[in-house]
């Protein structure tokens, strides 16, 4: 079983402090204490979703917005660049406009 830390009660992601294996349980620590099942392998230090997120939902860590879900994300899913968009430094979206 792997462990993951929830930093703020509002957070919808937790940070793994072990490597997580698909279909195995992950125990949440810190500001949450449930155990969830990981849907795919998650490397040490990467994030797991702790609450289902709709596409476009704000991703919260430290109780702050760290980006937006670019697709629906289920609790237990790996949360990273493949399903989260940054909101800042996005010259690609403004077409280079200042």
């Amino acid at each position: 079983m792997s462990r993951a830390i929830v930093l703020n009660a509002a957070d919808n992601v937790a940070t793994l402090i072990d490597s997580g294996r698909a279909a195995e349980p992950c125990k949440l620590q810190g500001e949450a204490s449930l155990t969830l099942t990981i849907s795919s392998d998650i490397p040490f230090g990467h994030k797991v979703c702790v609450r289902d997120l709709a596409a476009g939902a704000e991703v919260l860590k430290y109780g702050q917005v760290i980006g937006r879900a670019s697709q629906a994300i289920r609790a237990g899913d790996h949360v990273h660049t493949h399903n989260v968009e940054a909101a800042r430094g996005r010259g690609d979206q403004t077409g280079g406009a200042k």
């Binding site: 430094g89 010259g91 280079g96």
Partner: peptide, 9 residues
């Protein structure tokens, strides 16, 4: 940074 027209990620 945004004036370059890229995602900085």
């Amino acid at each position: 940074a945004m004036s370059i027209g890229m995602d900085i990620r």
